[in-house]
Each structure stands twice: as C-alpha cells, then as structure tokens.
Nucleic acid binder design. Structure first.
Lengths: 123, 123
DNA sequence: CTGGATCCGTGCCGATACTG
DNA sequence: CAGTATCGGCACGGATCCAG
C-alpha cells in the first residue's frame, strides 16, 4: 500500500430526503415564518391572520396553514356556531422551531452590512 | 379614555424587504447549503463540485455559485492556464453563515420523531 | 367567517447541445 | 476544465369566483 495522497471522494447523496432539508425549506418558505411569528403573539382566526400579513392571499394562507398543521407546528381548533370560528395557535414544536429560525434571522441582521457590501461590490 | 381592552393591530408589512428574509430564502434554497457544506471541507473546482453533489446540474451549479459569490459567502479564484482552473472556497462570512444553518439542521434532527409523528397523524 | 375550486402568469430547474 | 444558450415541464403563488 502506497503512502501517496488519496483523494477521498466526498459526495452528497439523496439530500432531498435529509430530514434537515425539509425544515430548511420550511424556513425559506415565503409565508411560513411570517405566520408562525404572528402566532407567537397569541391565538388568531383565519381572517385575523389574513389581515395581519400584508400581501398574503387567502389561498396561500389556507395552504400554508394546512402545511404547518401537517408538520405539527400549529394547531387548528374549530368552534362551531354562527359565525363559525377557527383558532390557530402555535404548538410547543412550532414555538421551539422559531428559536433556530430566529437565530438565523439575527445572523442576517448582524451581518447585514457585510452582505450589503458584498452585493454592492459584485453588482 | 375607556379602559376597555384595545385590540392592537399587529400587521406584518413589507416582509420581502426584511434582511432576514433573504437569508432564510438562501437557507431554504435547493442547492446553496449543500454546496456551502461541501466547500466547508476545502477548496473545490467546478467539475469537482459537480461530481460531489448528486443530482446537481451544471446549469444550477453555475447559477448557485454566482449567487453565493454575489452574497459574499464564497470566493471565486481563476487560475489561467491549460487546462483552466477555477477555485471555489468558503469566505469567513460563508463559514459564519453555516453556524445558524447547522443549528436549524440539528433542530430538525432532534425533533425528527415529533415531525414524523405529526405527519403520520395528519395523513 | 372559513374556506375550496379554477384559471393563469412567472420563475425554478433539469436536459441537452455548444464554446473557449 | 469551466462554463453558456436554449428549450420545456412543472410547481409556486396571485386573482377571482363559489360554497357551507
């Protein structure tokens, strides 16, 4: 066996099935983090949420809420009656998820000037 | 002035221009984190990177590298000659960015069973 | 009030072929 | 080796209308 340098192949396989990838996607999703952040302040109804986020269409609100509920990040509680009422709230898992998300947001704020400088330089 | 409960309007405006949003998008981007992670191991050439990530097309590799360079997360160094050689490497900013990204990935791993349970329950 | 259904523009992304 | 150019499928996401 020679002692010559050996090139170790470093290949990334199947990264779409990595459990971390799906939550990175979640964090990068257009509306998820905004909705989760609003719900951090308390329980909201559907139209309350709709009015709380500028630019958010009802269609995407519905889809994002269903998706967040599917991941167990929020809870959905139906109160029958007239008018009907549905409450959305953070779960413990959702509240926990916001911690690393906020860490990433704080990183962005802390390095905002570096990023702006790089973007200007490479413009 | 009455002391009745006042509903404080909580509206999220202009979240597309939030500096944190762009980096959350970056983290959720399909290839950026994978490429940054590979570059954490050292300097790579273009085709080396291409071969290191399964499923990554040269087209998206080029686009992602340009984008990462634009944000100052990686550096691009051209070595003229035959054959030509271009080295890609993490910058300090890029290495720093991987910390909160990894924190989010670790969160996903730590809560993998919770997420899987929720997804099964809501199936 | 809380959605679902449909239409449709736009951009992401892979496949393929070509260049210096 | 290190890209560029072009085509095309498909999913994201907004607008609008309909329903319980």
């Amino acid at each position: 066996m020679s002692t010559a340098a050996i090139t170790v192949p470093v290949t990334v396989n199947d990264h779409e099935n990595c459990p971390a990838t799906s939550m990175l996607r979640r964090a990068g999703d257009k509306w998820s983090v905004v909705i989760l952040s609003v719900l951090e302040r308390g329980t909201y109804g559907f139209n309350e949420l709709d009015r709380s986020v500028e630019g958010l269409s009802r269609r995407m609100l519905t889809r994002t809420l269903r998706s967040l509920e599917g991941d167990g990040l929020i809870s959905r509680t139906v109160h029958p009656g007239v008018p009907p009422r549905v409450d959305y709230a953070l779960t413990e898992l959702g509240r926990s998820f916001l911690e690393p998300v906020r860490a990433l947001g704080l990183w962005a704020l802390a390095h905002q000037s570096d990023l702006e400088a790089a973007r200007t330089r490479n413009r």
